[in-house]
Design a binder for these strands. Structure first.
Lengths: 336, 336
DNA sequence: TTGTACGCGTTATCAA
DNA sequence: TTGATAACGCGTACAA
């Protein structure tokens, strides 16, 4: 457990017989040091394997370029968003510090860890916290907090969500236009971002004068949730003509069980997902779905964080990223 | 970009009219301070929202409990391993610091970042580096390096791999026992951990006196790779009786296209994957595959890192985690 | 319990 | 360019 002491700026200075602050100036690329000094010092640094001590820098610097990112590695759409966040931060000269939700770790603990690193802001990706919990967390959090994927308009934290409500409503209209009237929504209650989608479904159904019907999936938000409901419906001989799922993976599990049982899609049942994962375009899947744009969400989240960092008084915003309907081959005219 | 100054131990001490080192002693849970002082200080700390400055601690402490973890968020099996690593570290009182490979970032840069945080060791999950590159990286890395998923026996770094070679060989024998003789391996050249699997395939085929046949997939290691090859084979009317894929997602893409084209599995073609993702057990998929145990791999990786931390002179090890064959419903007797 | 004092590696400001 | 000096937040040793 011993920490081998790494090379410091003082070591470089000693080796070269120059001052420690000259080394510092060169490595920070300040104007002042001569070209020759630059060259020698940079060469020595790399030869000795020097790496700046992030902790010491954080301790000394007045400002931080670190932005904390909380995510769940095994969730469906989050890894893509995390990748996009890296790119969006880099464009602004900022730097991501990750904190994963795994096992027993709560979001609060993950955020605490990031604050320990003195991150300038914290981005929560796909959080499972309620609006109230997010508000409380944001209030006790001394730096700007951005929630990506879920959350309501708030005075305490920024929100970036895809337009799930509008998107799913559009999907409902798409199916109604194809002659469907028995539409089922596959909900995953534990999955926060699915809430708005459910609202969109309910609203569009009511507007069309149709009876909403919601199936509550198991507490996973993956293929198993959809597969479970499909099994149940088949058993009861109670298949609707169209199904809207909380996300692509749920839709996908549903599809698998249907096809396995010889139910034809979309001839007998139409299916719509949400996310537009790469999986959705796969030959043999070709899922009709609502596209969630990870790049746009990441960019908006970073933009929101940067705004609040530049202008401390700025009010948190709520940004809606369009979730357009992508029609592929799992939706078609309703069976009669 | 201003960093609002967070609460320090000195702030707590001032507020309570006690000394800073009493606060320090209480927060470090040292024996000495009275129960009353403890209570007051802890209450004040939480009320003021105190969080220890990770950088200052790292700077002051001689030893680090931070273990760096490099991974790629969008890869298939890695998120599960990352989650397991958290748990394995926690069991030993250690702490994970993540660094993601996204966009242009190289592994070297990710490792540098972790060294900047003065991690005591670095774990690479599912690296795409060659043995030579890993060796070089490890040589220039002042702390122990563990590669999970790929790598050869080495004097420079530890390796934890699932027994891909042995596992795939077993799968080949399984298929041969079912009467197969035309077996195709779906390789993803860019995917390092697949190398050993390919070797296992080749060896088992040669031992059985059969001609190996390898299809090189596109450079993705997901469903698209398998789907592409399936499309090609169908076009050429050249389907083998059995297929072994580099991983579950490749196998899965292959399966989708087959089924979509009306090819029955396993009656006409048998398919074997690798990983045993949750997806593989899904009703309607039920993929025969080789199980990669994320918990076991994570535990072994952390164990290896801990060994080298305790005993600086210890030689790196290579640990093989069994990858047992799990027979489900995508393999059966060969068509004739 | 407290005060005093130092050091960790870095950034930063001054005057020479 | 350099040297002197301070500061960041925390851990820790020592004497009072």
């Amino acid at each position: 457990m011993e920490q081998r002491r790494l090379v410091t700026m003082a070591d470089i200075a000693r080796q070269l017989g120059v001052s420690r602050q000259l080394v510092s100036a060169v490595l920070r690329d300040e104007s002042g040091p001569s070209a020759e000094a630059r060259e020698r010092i940079i060469a020595a640094a790399r030869q000795l394997g020097y790496r700046p001590h992030a902790g010491a820098q954080a301790l000394r610097r007045a400002r931080s370029i670190d932005i904390g990112v909380v995510f769940t590695p095994t969730h469906a759409a989050e890894p893509e968003i995390v990748e996009s966040v890296y790119a969006a931060l880099a464009r602004r000269g900022l730097h991501a510090v990750l904190s994963a939700l795994a096992g027993e770790r709560t979001t609060g603990e993950a955020v605490d860890e990031l604050l320990g690193h003195r991150c300038a802001a914290v981005v929560l990706v796909g959080s499972e916290l309620s609006h109230l919990e997010l508000s409380r967390l944001a209030s006790s959090c001394p730096v700007p907090l951005v929630s990506v994927g879920t959350g309501r308009r708030s005075e305490a934290y920024d929100v970036v969500v895809s337009a799930g409500e509008r998107g799913v409503a559009e999907a409902v209209r798409h199916l109604i236009g194809l002659g469907h009237s028995e539409l089922l929504y596959l909900d995953v209650p534990a999955m926060r971002p699915a809430r708005a989608r459910l609202r969109g479904y309910r609203r569009a159904m009511r507007t069309a004068g149709l009876e909403p019907r919601v199936a509550r999936c198991a507490d996973t938000n993956d293929e198993w949730a959809g597969a479970g409901v499909a099994g149940l419906l088949l058993e009861q001989g109670d298949l609707p003509t169209g199904v809207l799922a909380a996300n692509d993976r749920v839709a996908f599990g549903f599809l698998q069980v249907l096809r396995q049982s010889g139910v034809r899609v979309p001839e007998e049942v139409s299916v719509v997902g949400f996310d537009d994962l790469r999986l959705a375009q796969l030959p043999g899947v070709e899922l009709t779905t609502l596209r969630q744009d990870p790049d746009a969400m990441a960019e908006a989240a970073v933009e929101a964080a940067a705004r609040r960092l530049e202008d401390t008084g700025a009010a948190p915003v709520r940004i809606l990223i369009p979730a357009p309907l992508v029609v592929r081959r799992t939706t078609g005219p309703a069976r009669r």
